[in-house]
Structure formats: C-alpha cells, structure tokens
Amino acid sequence: MNYLNYVIAAYAVFAIVLVWDFVATRLQIRRELRNARSRAARQAAQTTRSQTSELSR
C-alpha cells in the first residue's frame, strides 16, 4: 500500500490553508487599520468644523 500520494496531498492542503490563513489575517488587519484611520480623519474634520463654527458666533 502506497500512501505517498495521500501524504503529499494532505501536506499540500495543510500548506495552502496555512498560507491562506496568514494572507487573510493580513488583509483583515490592513482593512481595519484603513477604517480606523478614515474614522479618525472624519472625527478630526468634524471637531475642526464644530470649533470653527463656535468661534464665528
């Protein structure tokens, strides 16, 4: 009985899943950081607008 093909396939699937898990995590981190920066920029702009409008009263 030759299990070589099964073992090679099992290691290949493991490697693919491991790489995908790494890549998907990196993509998610990048997306969340981009969202956080965007949110911070919107809040900063809103704060600036509210301070400017209060000074003009």
Rank of each mutant, 00 (worst) to 15 (best):
Y3V: 05
R31M: 11
R57A: 08
A15L: 14
W20M: 12
L33H: 13
Q51I: 09
Y3P: 01
A44Y: 05
E32Q: 15
S38Y: 07
A45M: 12
I16C: 08
T47A: 15
T48I: 06
E32D: 12
F14I: 08
S56P: 00
Q43F: 05
A24W: 03
R37E: 07
I8P: 00
I16M: 07
R30I: 11
T48G: 03
R37G: 01
S38K: 10
R57F: 04
I8M: 03
N35H: 05
A44Q: 14
R34I: 02
T25H: 05
E54H: 10
Q51A: 10
Q28R: 11
I8A: 09
R26D: 04
S38L: 10
A40K: 02
Q46M: 12
L55H: 07
A45W: 04
N5A: 15
A40L: 02
A40W: 01
I16W: 02
R34D: 06
E54S: 11
I16Y: 02
V17H: 00
R42K: 15
A44V: 02
V23W: 03
V17Q: 01
F14E: 07
T48A: 15
T47S: 08
D21Q: 12
Q43N: 13
M1A: 14
A41R: 15
Q43W: 03
T25I: 04
R34E: 12
I8N: 05
A45F: 04
D21K: 10
Y3N: 13
Y11G: 04
T25K: 08
V23R: 02
A24I: 03
M1N: 12
Q28T: 03
A15V: 09
V19L: 14
A36F: 04
L27V: 06
Q43P: 00
A12R: 11
N35K: 15
Y6W: 09
A41W: 02
R34N: 01
E32S: 10
Q51S: 09
M1P: 02
L55N: 10
V17C: 07
A40V: 01
V13C: 06
A45H: 09
Q51P: 00
A12L: 05
A24H: 03
R37F: 03
V13G: 09
L33S: 04
V13E: 14
I29N: 11
E54Q: 15
L33R: 15
R37N: 08
I29G: 02
N2W: 01
T52E: 13
E32R: 13
L55Y: 07
S53C: 01
S38C: 02
D21R: 09
R39V: 06
S50R: 13
R30P: 00
T47K: 15
Q51W: 03
V13F: 12
R49F: 10
L4G: 04
V17N: 01
V7D: 07
A10C: 04
Q46W: 02
